[in-house]
Write a protein that binds this DNA or RNA. Structure first.
Lengths: 219, 219
DNA sequence: AGGCCGCTCCCCCGTGCGGCGGAGCGGGAT
DNA sequence: ATCCCGCTCCGCCGCACGGGGGAGCGGCCT
């Protein structure tokens, strides 16, 4: 099984990291590091020239971060390389952004040399371990569901949030009053405040806003 | 770099597939097929005895399908193997179920031998290419968002669905009437029908029901 | 020919809701 | 000591809403 050489570009703002990665990958006869970049912008141009098969892309980089660089590379080239995004921590929210941007894989820096090499080989040859398409669909959806909450969310007082939650539970003002142990007039006041702060005109629109804002997904 | 042998179990109801997989994997010195199973139930017991590092699990199998077998294996063993779910088609909805069940990877049957071998090696050594945790979170969320729609959805007439959609857009009856080019009385009739069919008492609850049912995610 | 159903529209009635303005109270900040 | 703010309530008003009726029309099925 004679394989063609896999051409790799490294994008990381730390020279030491690049050196380490180069050392690891160069030890493999079938892998060749054909370029390095220290910024996202640099990565885009280096990739354009070197036409690699795989890019190891750090998320945190000056000028243009790894996510945007990934987007630009995938958008700008007819046959873009497979991009593996590299980061330090697992619970990084960049994960989702990276996948949505079209990254083929996601690698931890604490991964050992062996895993790294095999990940590169794998993404270079196939897209069938965890379809990017499927993962991207999931990530897109995640973004839709967990969209950035509007400003009004933080503007609500404790009581107002409580009332809004009950409104979104389908309760009438009287029911909310009973549940909260206050008078109906008080609830009306809170409702009015919620409508004002959410910029809505009636409880239905307020509930819609709550859902759209992901207000109901919290906690 | 002397590696310990990677122990693999094959679970597929077609003998030919198992044979083919065995042939491919056995050609690699660092891989060893230590068991085969033709059903999901068999897979669970074989895995329990053979204690493999990796399981290649077909989704469609008699008795217990690959998804449930995956769940049972992961739930029942203190140090479960990494499970790669194998299927034929990409747009298979099993993808999400498999990931939610805790599969470490997802492989297409049309993947070539090389990709297969490397996928096995990769999942055996690391979990850092596309964290299962991240992917599982996404899959779980996907399931939550795309939950099975209630029966009433199919019971709504075309006009009623239209009205509900407008209700969930925050419109009043009069506005809906204008947008639909009908009289307000007609809208009221449709609204009444929607409330009856959704089992809700006012438009707010109906809108909530629409959101909860994923009615707003369709198209 | 008759029946069912979806769509259209009508009237009446009670009420939950939202807008408006006002008020008292306690706590934290300045 | 003063002010602001969150929470608690009050009355009044107009209206959109929802419930309960009924009715005509066209299409589909039998």
């Amino acid at each position: 099984m004679t394989e063609p050489t896999i051409r790799v570009v490294l994008a990381d703002d730390e020279r030491m990291v690049r050196t380490a990665l180069r050392a690891i990958l160069s030890a493999e006869p079938d892998l060749e590091v054909v370029g390095e970049a220290a910024t996202g912008a640099e990565a885009v141009s280096v990739v354009r020239e070197a036409a690699p098969d795989v890019v190891l892309m750090d998320v945190r980089m000056p000028e243009v971060d790894g996510i945007r660089a990934t987007e630009q590379i995938l958008a700008g080239l007819p046959e873009p390389p497979r991009i593996v995004v590299v980061t330090t921590f697992e619970n990084d929210s960049y994960v989702y952004d990276a996948l949505r941007a079209g990254a083929a894989g996601f690698l931890l820096k604490r991964a050992d040399a062996d895993a790294l090499v095999q990940a590169v080989r794998l993404v270079a040859r196939t897209d069938s371990l965890l379809f990017p398409s499927a993962v991207r669909a999931l990530a897109t959806e995640h973004a839709r569901v967990h969209a950035a909450p509007p400003a009004w969310v933080s503007g609500l007082t404790g009581r107002e949030s409580e009332v809004l939650r009950h409104m979104a539970g389908g309760l009438t003002n009287a029911e909310i009053a009973r549940r909260m142990g206050v008078g109906p007039a008080t609830v009306k006041t809170h409702v009015a405040a919620v409508l004002a702060k959410t910029g809505t005109r009636d409880r239905t629109q307020a509930v819609i806003a709550a859902y759209e804002a992901g207000f109901m997904n919290v906690r």
